[in-house]
Every structure is written in structure tokens, then in C-alpha cells.
Amino acid sequence: MEILKLIRWKNLLMIALTQYLIKYAFFEPFGVNITLNLFGFSLLVLATLCIAAGGYVINDIYDVETDLINKPDQVIVGKTISEQAANNLFIAFNVIGVGIGFYLSHLVGKSAFFATFIIVSGLLYVYASYLKPMPLIGNLVISAMVALSIIIVGLFELIPAITPGNQETQLTFFTILWDYALFAFILNLLREMIKDIEDIDGDHKAGMNTLPIAIGRERAKKIAFAVSFIPLGGAIYYLINYLYGNMVAVVYFLVAIIAPMLYIVIKIFMAETKKEFHFISNMIKLVMLLGMLSLIIYKYSLLD
């Protein structure tokens, strides 16, 4: 059970759900040409989850000092799981993830895609060991990794199946997937900024130099407040320009995405305590999940 907590099983479940939704709720209902069967796609999901799990493990290894201050009841490394065991898990997850990535890259005839798994694995280590304490840079890197977990489905499913006859359709679906990845990137960046404000005390004592430490808590909150308008504006723009003619899509976006984002914007403006910022962080994660679930409604939208 402690290992499941260490690898953030709930976050991994969300990644897997998102990737399966892309394939079975977004690609297949429209008859898009795809590359992998269920077994091959499940291997892609497994590879993604293994590398993500490795990232969570190495992050906790390097975060023990700050976590003892910010969330002492949730510290696992050094308490219920030794640092050596955690390092072994990190290595094992990455070996499995990169190994599956090597197999899949050759399976789809795109051996260069193998580099994606190597780069992500390396970046997650560099993030935990070096980039995380730096203002914004660490936030941008980890948010890019979140976006890549969406884009990688298009890389392995759509790109290898492109032919002269279906190129326009394949690229259209890849573009929509890119929009979702950008939405996830911005939301996760906002969440990382909020978490840095929430954890400012522990991070400061650990000698980190996150954005709220570098420029002050209030200035960081103002920047997060400004950033929160980007996903809100993006959702409104998407609704007006692509989904406005379909009532199901309109209602879903208004209720499940735009309304919660408006609430988040207001809460960021008013937030003062650690508890309030923690609540905002969880709300952003919920909006990310609801945003991914919107893939289900596309078969009812104007795309068909």
C-alpha cells in the first residue's frame, strides 16, 4: 500500500484513463486510422505509467527534507520505505518504461520515437534533482511532461498511420489532441505555481528558490491569478468557435469546465491560507480530469 502512495496511484490512474479515452472515445468513434491494437496500446500506457511512477519516486527521494515540513504525515521515503528501496524502484520503473518504449518504437516503424522515453526519463530525474527549486523552470518542465503524456498517444497512434489519402484527417485529430495537451500544460503550470505558494514555508527552510520565495508570496499569487485567465479564456474560445452549435457540448463545457475555472479564478484572488491554496490545487486537478472527460462528448459534437 505504501508503494502505491509513493507512486501516486491516483495520478497514474488519471493518466491511464486519459490515454484510453483518447483512443476509444475520441479516435475510434470517428474511424480514424490508428496503429496499435489493444495489447500494443496497453503497452504504451504501461510505459507511460512506469516512467511517471519513476518520476514520482525520485521526486519524493529528493523532497524528503521539504516534505517533513510541508506534509510530515505523508512522508514515505526514509520512514516506511528506505531510500535504497526507493532508488531501486526508480531504476526498475525506468528500465521497464524505456524498454517497452524501445519495443513499441520499432513496432510502429518509428525507431526515433524511442528518444521520447529516454528524454522524459532523464528530464524527470533532472527536474527532481536540479530544476525543481528554480523559479518557474521546474514548473514549466513538469507541465510539459504532463502535456506529453497526451501528445504521445497521437505520436504512436496517428503519425505512423498517415497516408497521402488520410493525411488531412490525421493531422486534424492530432491538432485537436495538441489543443488538449496545451490546456493540460497551462492548468498544470497553474497548479504547480499554487503548490509552490502553498509549500512556501517548507521550501524556504530547505533552501529552495521557487517563484514565491524569489519574488514574494503576494507577487506570485498575482501572477497565478493572471495565468488562471488563460485556460478560462481558452475554454470559452473553444466553446464559441468549435462547439457552440451542439447543446451537449455547450452544457458540458459551461458546467464542468468554465464554471469551475471561474470559481478557481475567484478563489486564487481571495486565497490567503495554506489550506485555501491546497483546496485550489485540488480544484485545478478536478478541472483537468473533467477536461479530459470532455473527449467523450466529441461524437455528439459538430465534428461528426
Rank of each mutant, 00 (worst) to 15 (best):
A256G: 00
L262R: 08
F173L: 04
L254H: 04
A224E: 01
A249Y: 02
T273W: 07
L187T: 12
G234D: 01
L262E: 11
T210L: 07
I257F: 03
I258Y: 05
F156N: 00
K275E: 13
Y237I: 11
M208S: 10
L177S: 01
F156L: 07
F229Y: 15
D199A: 13
T172S: 15
I258K: 07
M270R: 15
G234E: 00
F183K: 00
I257Q: 05
L239D: 01
N246C: 06
Y238A: 10
L177K: 02
M270F: 13
A206N: 09
V248K: 04
N166D: 14
D199V: 11
D196T: 12
P164R: 14
I236Q: 02
I194E: 02
A161K: 10
V251S: 07
F174K: 07
F174G: 04
A181T: 08
E157G: 02
A184M: 12
T175N: 08
M261P: 01
V227R: 05
L177H: 03
A181I: 08
D179V: 08
Q167D: 12
E276I: 07
Q170I: 14
E192P: 06
A249G: 09
A220Y: 01
I200K: 07
E198K: 11
D199N: 14
E276R: 05
A256F: 12
L239W: 00
R191L: 13
L190S: 10
R217A: 06
I162F: 02
G165Q: 07
I176H: 08
G202A: 06
K275T: 09
I186Y: 14
D201F: 15
G207K: 04
L171G: 03
M247G: 00
K221A: 03
E218M: 10
I268D: 01
S228D: 13
E168L: 11
K222Q: 14
F269V: 10
L243Q: 04
I264F: 03
E157A: 03
T163D: 13
I159G: 01
I194Y: 10
E157H: 02
D199S: 13
S228H: 09
A256I: 02
V255D: 14
A259I: 11
N246F: 06
A235I: 10
A181C: 09
T169V: 15
L177T: 03
F225T: 14
A181D: 02
I159P: 00
M208K: 08
K205S: 09
Y244A: 11
A259Q: 14
N246H: 13
A206L: 07
L243N: 03
L190R: 10
P212F: 02
Y263T: 15
V251M: 05
I162H: 00
Q170S: 15
K221H: 05
F183Q: 02
L262D: 07
E157F: 00
N246Q: 14
I186P: 00
M193G: 10
I213C: 04
G245L: 14
A249M: 09
G207Y: 09
I215A: 11
G234R: 01
M193Q: 12
V250Q: 04
V255R: 13
T163N: 12
V250E: 04
T210F: 04
A259W: 13
A249W: 03
G202Q: 05
I194H: 05
R219M: 05
N209Q: 15
Y263R: 15
L190W: 11
